[in-house]
Design a protein around this nucleic acid. Structure first.
Lengths: 231, 231
DNA sequence: GGCTCGTTTCGGTCCCGGCCGAAGTGTTCC
DNA sequence: GGAACACTTCGGCCGGGACCGAAACGAGCC
């Protein structure tokens, strides 16, 4: 009935840190999250149980590991919206990096990263802009795929979900506010499909264990030839 | 940086009840909210101060009353998304197709809705423009009602508050910026009177419990005949 | 069987914050 | 001026929950 219990799950700094880390769309073990958030494993375990019980996370147990990830795109957008609003009111940009490691990570993430299951950072924004410039997407009356866009996607062998956005939950395209770029980029099922394609075809690859991505030489060429994106 | 403080604002049952009540887009007094939520006035006062400090609510002080309302459509959608997710996981809500519902609701709100206690959306802007076009309102040196306007209002039997604008808090007319239309529309006591009239005479009716309005067939005719408004 | 390691459960501490009532401030009405 | 009213501030009470360390559990490895 009330949304207070749900909000309470997100109201704790440690749990919020978990959710933020999980926004990269991958599964983390309980211990990784505990270390990343700076709490004891026992504390993390309790938090995870609550988040799972609340439907925000799902778990997969493998041997002695407990992998958790966000329960779905709905959760991801909820958290993004929350973070976006918080950033817009508290005015704070990204926190000042406290170490060289941190600064490196931040600049890598600002360049290219995953935002749950789609591309974000300057790469995500550039791709979105290019799609709009080429008339593959339109922003009249809300973001939408044009006919040319559908043809282009078919030509690139990028497959879309069968019946997107009709009664079944997920919108085909969604504008996702990026709180580092302060710009919108492409989310939704199409954003996810593009990201998947980019990873499958090795246009981008993950850097380390975080959400940061590196654009490969192949990817650089592909983006330039297909979309005129120059990074 | 983190969204935890924002979520904490929404994590208290009493504050959640406030936000839910305010989702109708109207302004409530602190006392009304306290009674509605079943807490002492002093408790409500503290909650409101926190919600306002957090940017979720804005206040308008009028005499000994403290009116609060949601800070804007962004807050409204944030709360609606939270409530929607909570309903979907806790099984309380109907398994309604959320995206379609959402799209329908949004387009309905863009068409016509209440903003505090007056009309907003395309309907509100259209009515305000019509009043200006017909010389019933003037925008020279601030919005004001003309003599013709007073006569017209009297002819329509639209009654204004007895002592409008004289030291007692509320101005007769007020320009209210519409976030979605990016246009000003008519607020203040007159805006409220018009909205009240429209509801009383069944020119518009609330859709469900939200802020969206539907223009009835009667309303469509009345608006066209009285103001030349064609939607 | 022992050992390590990731995770969980439990007991205990501590602090945050929601709540109220009483008193204080400012406004309106008579 | 005085009374009623809406709201606010303050002090004090109390419960929930975040946290940790110690110990238990269970999987994998030797």
């Amino acid at each position: 009935m009330s949304f207070a219990p749900l909000a309470a799950l997100l109201a704790d700094p440690t749990r919020a840190a978990f959710c933020t880390a999980l926004l990269d769309g991958r599964a983390w073990t309980a211990g990784e999250l505990a270390r990343q958030a700076g709490v004891a494993p026992s504390t993390a375990s309790e938090h995870l149980s609550r988040l799972i019980a609340g439907g925000l996370l799902v778990e997969e147990r493998q041997g002695r590991h407990r992998y958790v990830r966000l329960a779905g795109p709905t959760v991801a957008t909820l958290i993004e919206d929350l973070a976006g609003f918080a950033a817009s009111t508290e005015g704070g940009g990204p926190p000042a990096p406290r170490s060289l490691r941190e600064a490196t990570r931040q600049s890598a993430e600002a360049r290219a990263r995953t935002c749950y299951d789609h591309l974000a950072g300057r790469l995500g924004v550039a791709v979105t802009d290019a799609l709009l410039d080429h008339g593959l997407l339109t922003d009249d009356a809300g973001l939408a795929v044009t006919e040319r866009g559908r043809a282009w996607l078919a030509a690139q062998a990028i497959e879309l979900p069968e019946r997107p956005g009709r009664r079944s939950g997920r919108p085909l395209v969604r504008s996702c506010l990026d709180w580092t770029e302060r710009r919108s980029h492409l989310g939704g099922a199409l954003g996810a499909a593009l990201c998947r394609t980019a990873l499958d075809r090795a246009w981008v690859e993950r850097i380390g264990s975080g959400r940061a991505l590196r654009v490969t030489a192949d990817g650089d060429r592909a983006l330039r030839e297909l979309l005129g994106v120059r990074l």
